[in-house]
Simulated assay, not measured.
Amino acid sequence: MILPSDTLDALCPMHMHIGADGGVRRMGPTLRKLMEGAAGEGAQFAEMMDVFRPRRVGTVPDLLALSGRRLQLRLCRGSQMVLKGLAMPDGQGGVIVNMSFGIAVVDAVREHALTSTDFAVTDLAIDMLYLVEAKSAAFEASRTLNRRLQGAMLAAEQRAYTDTLTGLRNRRALDHVLQRLLLEGGNFALLHIDLDYFKQVNDTHGHAAGDRVLQAVARVMLELTRKDDTVARIGGDEFVILLVGLTDRVRLSALAEQLIHRIERPIPVEDVECRVSASIGIAFGAPKTGARPGAEELMERADSALYRAKRQGRAQHAFDEPTPVEDLR
């Protein structure tokens, strides 16, 4: 005796009832949904599904011979995904094939917009889907948290190496880059820059005006240096520029003079114009004679050259000795 159709639909929403003549008598509601509206009842089952494992079958006797065995099949209409199946005799010479998605259930739900009503209430696929969704949500939450943590770490690191007023590198960043350059053993120049007459700006116009001047000077330095150069503010009105691979005195003199000329331009602050200049001391990371200096010694050499420039009348630049190697660029 065959179960009533509504009973079969509830117990096996993906069943196909095949008569003894091979014709499809009925399909469950979920299976019809997968067929995407294609007519099924009355057609030959071999036109509706392709059973290819454990072997290919095309007749009802062949299908009955596989009763109780797990089948793999593919629908010939609508969805082309591979399904699992179990064929059992209906007691009247026909066969009922119950199908399931197997591990493809997640893809099937997504592709065909299936809901819990498309599965038997006892089908554990729904519970599995809830677990998959929960796992996906947990992974996404974890990824979001990791991205936020990484972003916070990068932001904190950036703040730790950035001068908050000017946006330039700070002393910590300069020390890090300088140590790396010395370890790599390459040629570079270090420019120690001190602003002339900056104290008068602060005393006359206030610290807010002084901050505006420092920001304007920082922009000039960034405009006149290369992307790979390091520009740092290391103290109130003191700056350092590291120029990798540039040790030619002619080019360095031209850059120093250009920096001084640009910094000397009046800087408008509200209704007044602030004026400063700059003195520059230049030292080399790879001197032509003598041992390569360490970071502290190199800074001292640049500082000594800087104050020699100031003693010569300010708004000038001076080189540390000895003579550097030729420009390698």
Rank of each mutant, 00 (worst) to 15 (best):
R171W: 06
S136V: 14
N170Q: 09
D175M: 07
L246R: 10
M153F: 12
A209K: 04
K288S: 15
Q215H: 00
L63P: 08
R74V: 14
V250R: 09
R180K: 13
V132A: 11
S100K: 05
N187D: 12
A216S: 13
P13T: 02
R233S: 05
L3N: 01
A278C: 04
E133H: 07
G186K: 04
F119M: 08
V276D: 14
R171Q: 14
L149I: 14
G290Q: 06
P266S: 11
R74D: 08
L75Y: 03
L165S: 03
L190E: 01
L246H: 06
D248A: 14
Y197F: 15
V244A: 15
T144N: 14
L129G: 08
F101Y: 15
I263T: 08
R329K: 06
A232K: 10
E257Y: 03
V201T: 02
Y307T: 03
I234T: 15
R70C: 09
D303W: 02
E321I: 03
E223K: 05
D203T: 07
K84C: 12
A209R: 05
A208P: 01
D90R: 06
L114C: 10
L71C: 09
R143H: 11
I96M: 12
G42S: 13
G19F: 01
L71W: 10
V60I: 04
A155Y: 06
L214A: 08
V57F: 01
G78C: 14
A218G: 09
V240E: 01
G206L: 04
D320V: 01
I234S: 06
Y161H: 14
V109N: 02
I267C: 15
L124R: 07
P13W: 00
P29A: 06
E41N: 06
E140C: 08
A305C: 12
R219D: 14
L73I: 10
L183S: 14
L182M: 11
F119V: 09
D90F: 09
V132M: 10
F45A: 05
L243R: 07
V240Y: 01
P54T: 02
G167P: 05
E238N: 05
H207C: 02
G42E: 12
L149C: 02
G37A: 05
A38N: 12
F52M: 00
V57E: 00
Y307S: 02
D118F: 09
F52W: 03
D196N: 08
T164C: 07
R301I: 04
F139I: 13
A156T: 12
D228A: 13
Q158H: 15
V272Y: 11
G91N: 13
L168C: 11
M81S: 08
